Structures are given as structure tokens and as C-alpha cells.
Amino acid sequence: MARGKIQIKRIENQTNRQVTYSKRRNGLFKKAHELTVLCDARVSIIMFSSSNKLHEFISPNTTTKEIIDLYQTVSDVDVWSAHYERMQETKRKLLETNRKLRTQIKQRLGECLDELDIQELRSLEEEMENTFKLVRERKFKSLGNQIETTKKKELRAEDPHYGLVDNGGDYDSVLGYQIEGSRAYALRYHQNQHHHYPNHALHAPSASDIITFHLLE
């Protein structure tokens, strides 16, 4: 049974369009490979799908650039000139942007002000005042945080009950201090708890007992 002729027009269904593209692309690349082998031809095929995905076929032992360079030589057309001009234009724009930014930085440092008129000077002054306001607000916030931290440290130093609590609940306060260059921790017992230690030199603790443990630095 003969296959029906397909009408050449855009396939509206996206899935069917993608399947047809893949099948015909592979068929085209297969024919290009056969042409390369049978006829010793140099073939380059560049394709972009509707989603801008690149597919290309290049004859073995050659590159796309070599094919394009050969095309330029044979047809006397400079393919790269337009691309080079676009690159040069992009470079010029970047250099101009860099120059303007450097000038703005110098102006904010009090340099390069002679070329500004009165309106530009007023605008620059307003911008710097707004910036100064933001910096000052940030400074006051940092100072407030430092003061709060200092108050907490002072509370720890003045109140022996303000400290760490052992996870086991054996002690109700921990106080750290310095003894002759080494660090020590004084631990105070709960009033209603008694503990036994292997060291018989320690007596049964009371509410006011303090045991000091020296920690090597």
C-alpha cells in the first residue's frame, strides 16, 4: 500500500512537529554522510529546532570554521566582518560605561568637579546626603547592638547565677573566672541534691558548697 503524500505546511501539533523534525534531521544527516563517503565531499549542515536547539553535521576530519573559511574564499564574501563589527561596538560601549563609572567614583571623592554645572553639582550633593544618611543609620544600629552585647556581658560578670546550666541538672549555676593564668569554673549544687564522689576528701555538699575545677589553657 502506497504511503499518502504529506502536505508541506507547518505541523500545528507540537509533539508531532518535534517527532517529524527528529526523523527528517536524522535522514538528512544520513544522506550527508553517504555523500561525504561516496563522493569525497566536504559537507556542513547547521540546524536549529523551534526551541533553538543546535544540531549539526560536519564531514570527518574537518570543522565548521574550515567550511565557512572555504566558503568565504570561493564566494568572496566576508562572513566574519559583521560579527567582528558587533564585537567592536560592544567593546566601545563597555569602555564608555567603565569611563563613566570611574568619573562618578572620582566625583564622589571630591575630584573631577570642574566639568559639572550647578544643577549637576546639586544632584551630586543630594545623592551624597542620602548616602550619608543611610551610613549614619547603619552606624547607630551597629552601636546599639554593641551596647546590648556589652550589657549582657556585664550581667554575666555581676550575677553568679547568670550562666550555663548543666544538661543533667546537677548544678544550678556555673561561674567562670581566672586563677593565676588558668581558667576555672565554680559549680554550685542544688539545695536538695546530694552526690557521691570517689574522692573521699570531699564532704557532703550543702547549699553553699562550691567545687572549683581548673582547666588547662
Rank of each mutant, 00 (worst) to 15 (best):
D76L: 05
K91P: 02
I147K: 15
T103S: 15
L70C: 05
L143W: 07
S75R: 14
S173R: 08
S123I: 05
I210M: 11
G27A: 00
G110C: 09
Y71Q: 00
V37H: 00
K9N: 01
E66H: 03
L164T: 07
D170I: 00
K100R: 13
S123E: 13
A186H: 02
K141Y: 07
D117G: 02
T97H: 09
K93L: 15
L95R: 11
N26Q: 13
K133L: 07
N130S: 06
G169F: 04
S50R: 05
H196T: 15
G176W: 03
E217K: 14
K65E: 12
A32V: 03
T131V: 06
R92Y: 14
S59C: 06
L94T: 10
K53L: 00
E12M: 08
L215E: 02
E154W: 09
Y177Q: 10
Y189Q: 08
S123N: 13
K133N: 07
Y71V: 01
K65Y: 15
I8L: 08
P60L: 06
Y71E: 00
L116E: 14
E126M: 07
H190R: 08
S81K: 12
A184S: 04
S173K: 05
K31L: 09
R3W: 09
E34W: 01
H55W: 01
K23E: 13
Q72E: 13
I11G: 03
I105K: 14
N192V: 06
H196P: 03
D78T: 05
L164N: 02
Y189P: 04
D172H: 11
P198G: 15
T36D: 11
R17S: 00
A32S: 07
E129D: 11
N61S: 06
G176F: 10
E180T: 12
I11W: 00
R42F: 07
A186M: 08
F57R: 13
T97M: 11
A184E: 02
A41T: 03
K30W: 04
Y84G: 07
E66L: 15
K30C: 05
L28N: 06
I211H: 04
R99E: 12
V19Q: 11
L202D: 10
D69Y: 15
D159W: 13
S22G: 09
D172P: 05
Y84V: 06
R92V: 09
E137R: 07
K133M: 07
Q104Y: 15
C112N: 14
I67W: 09
Y84D: 13
S206D: 08
V79K: 12
R108E: 14
Y162D: 03
L143S: 11
R86L: 10
V174G: 08
A32L: 05
I179A: 12
L113M: 15
T103V: 12
Q18L: 06
H195P: 04
I118Q: 11
E154V: 13
L134G: 02
E125K: 05
Y162W: 03
E66W: 08
H195V: 10
F140M: 06
P205R: 01
E66S: 05
F48Y: 09
T36H: 08
P60Q: 12
Q119W: 14
I210K: 09
T90F: 04
T36C: 05
L155C: 13
T64E: 15
D114C: 07
D69T: 15
K93Y: 14
V165W: 09
N61C: 02
K139R: 12
R156D: 06
G144L: 09
I45N: 02
E12K: 02
V74W: 04
G169Q: 08
I46P: 04
